[in-house]
Nucleic acid binder design. Sequence first.
DNA 1: GACACGTGTAAGAATATTCTTACACCAGAT
DNA 2: ATCTGGTGTAAGAATATTCTTACACGTGTC
Lengths: 112, 112
Amino acid sequence: MDSEDLTGAQLLAAFAALANPHRLRIIAALADGRQYVSLLARQLGMSRPLLHMHLQKLQAAGLVSGELELSEDGKAVKYFEATEFSLHVTPHAIKGLAPTLPEPADNGKETD
Amino acid sequence: MDSEDLTGAQLLAAFAALANPHRLRIIAALADGRQYVSLLARQLGMSRPLLHMHLQKLQAAGLVSGELELSEDGKAVKYFEATEFSLHVTPHAIKGLAPTLPEPADNGKETD
DNA sequence: GACACGTGTAAGAATATTCTTACACCAGAT
DNA sequence: ATCTGGTGTAAGAATATTCTTACACGTGTC
């Protein structure tokens, strides 16, 4: 996940995902290592459905990844971890990606 | 404008400012050099009040700067240029700034 | 069976953002 | 005086995002 390899639309999604204090805290909490959703919600003091929504957005932007596992006592547990992204953002870098930005009217839809 | 020197709240404002295709295009357009508002609006195909709003947000985040000048024929002309920011964003960098993030309930108000 | 603890998701309210339209001001040229 | 071309800003509509509440399912334990 290097900023060099991204399209404008992907970089935009990353910025949108990062533009929220909850989600920055989530990344901070996952920077050390992985954690499962319910415990993470308790650690961050937010409701589990809310955390779920934020994790979806972070995952869609490629900033975290999650995998469902089975714990020893049979429960399904979903662990998330931060991906090792590295975005180097400068005016020049943005200029390079501008041609691949979606039109403001666009809804990011593919040729459907 | 180096990501090392920012607080969490400032980084958050920068991400929020970058999370919009119009604003990324504005930065791209200003990466080469400065331009005044009305012409920039025509180049980007957006209304001047809308551009004005986006420029305010970018300026508040420190990503562009503007200065009002007097042209030779007496008109007030406001030029904007991209600041030379450089944000290096990684999970570890975010973790370092997390303690200075605003509370989600916060409205970013100072001790007023 | 009821409880505890994990998962996911949907509906609707509450907020925040984005965008248009309409206004006001200033200065030079016709 | 009116037109052109710069500036700024306010009000309200249209969208998008955020958040809560309430539901559903599965498994191990009391």
